[in-house]
């Protein structure tokens, strides 16, 4: 049984945000209005956090792309009163919209603030409805959503591999952000397969995870050289 995980190389990331747009396109994430944006209610399953260090003019900045961390010990799951969010056997932290009652306990308990509440009914001008991905449902107002590691792409990849009578191989299943990243800064694969690239990178000296001390055991690893002043 694979344990899906992601490794993001901050030394390669240029903050271009192709991952952000690819995610919005793949997952039918509604765009905000200026008012919604002012209230900080933009939904962006993948978002890039700029972290600047140093004093003028010796500044350094790194960009941290942040999808759902798919924690092995997910704080959001513990507080869901209806079982709408759970961790599946492959380590994906799932969000089942039809179960969700919109209580937002999970959004509050996520230390990474990566769960998003639908404050509004999603709407697109009718022309733009054409570009919606038919594989992914549109969440209504009042539902919590988050990055799924594009697990519908897993379903499709698995199906394709089976149709071709072979096992799922590395690279068959990658989320949309991984697929597009111009610098190939995002890696994806099975952390439990010791030979997979992600497992190797996650074991490497540059690897760290966000807020590791909380014991959430996130499955998104970051790579960076040295301390901030590298």
């Amino acid at each position: 049984m694979p344990r899906w995980g992601m490794v993001i190389d901050l030394d390669k990331c240029t903050g271009c945000q192709a991952c952000v747009i690819a995610c919005k396109a793949e997952n039918n994430i509604p765009f905000s209005s200026p008012k919604e944006a002012r209230l900080k209610r933009i939904i962006s399953w993948m978002s890039v956090l700029p972290v600047m260090e140093g004093e003028y003019p010796d500044l350094r900045e790194r960009f941290i792309p942040r999808p759902c961390m798919h924690c092995d010990n997910p704080p959001c799951v513990k507080v869901c009163p209806v079982g709408a969010t759970y961790k599946n056997r492959e380590g994906l932290v799932a969000q089942v919209y039809t179960q969700c009652i919109g209580c937002r306990y999970c959004t509050n308990n996520c230390p990474y603030t990566l769960k998003y509440f639908n404050w509004y009914t999603p709407e697109w001008p009718k022309e733009m409805e054409n570009y919606l991905n038919p594989d992914v449902p549109i969440r209504s107002k009042g539902v919590v959503e988050k990055c799924t590691f594009c697990h519908h792409r897993l379903q499709k990849a698995r199906e394709k591999a089976r149709a071709e009578n072979r096992r799922l191989k590395e690279g068959d299943y990658v989320p949309a952000c991984v697929q597009t990243c111009p610098t190939e800064a995002i890696y994806f694969g099975d952390l439990d397969d010791p030979h997979s690239l992600v497992a190797k990178l996650a074991r490497g000296p540059r690897a760290f995870r966000l807020l590791e001390e909380l014991g959430t055991e996130p499955k998104v690893y970051y790579l960076t050289e040295g301390e901030w002043h590298g």
């Binding site: 599946n88 056997r89 994906l92 799932a94 089942v96 992914v136 449902p137 697990h151 519908h152 379903q155």
Partner: peptide, 8 residues
């Protein structure tokens, strides 16, 4: 029968 095998 995992939920997300069908519920995307």
């Amino acid at each position: 029968n995992d939920c997300i095998a069908c519920h995307i």
